[in-house]
């Protein structure tokens, strides 16, 4: 699709705004420092765990830097509009985040904000 006038753009904005929203969003800070600190295996672990539990209403995103460089790799989970930021995440922690925090709603360690 190519936007050729202002109404095309408004239509696109409307379409995006009306897309069904996932209830839960998981974001992994995936900029140079995050990747250097080991964000890649974290993403892979999250993908694997999400697939395992067949979770449909959860979206996984790789984003840029969130600023909490000291605690990289970081993972932010947005649930019911509330953000929870986990720091120093590794693949073990990633599994725990999906299984315990997202799925079972348990409070787990490793929250930095």
């Amino acid at each position: 699709m190519k936007i050729t006038n202002f109404s095309d753009f408004d239509a696109l904005k409307n379409r995006i705004a009306n897309e069904q929203k996932d209830e839960i969003t998981i974001r992994v800070a995936y900029a140079t420092c995050g990747i250097t600190a080991g964000a890649k295996p974290v993403v892979e672990a999250l993908e694997k765990e999400l697939l395992k539990h067949n979770l449909c209403c959860v979206s996984l995103k790789t984003t840029g830097c969130l600023g909490a460089c000291y605690a990289e790799p970081t993972v932010m989970v947005t649930k019911d509009g509330v953000d929870t930021l986990f720091g120093y995440v590794d693949s073990v922690k990633a599994h725990e985040i999906v299984k315990e925090f997202v799925l079972n709603g348990k409070e787990i360690e490793g929250v930095i904000k």
């Binding site: 140079t32 420092c33 250097t36 600190a37 460089c69 000291y70 990289e72």
Partner: peptide, 14 residues
């Protein structure tokens, strides 16, 4: 081996 100094790779937190 070769050893070089670089100016900031932008991974200051590490």
């Amino acid at each position: 081996f070769s050893l070089d100094a670089v100016r900031c790779v932008g991974a200051c937190s590490l």
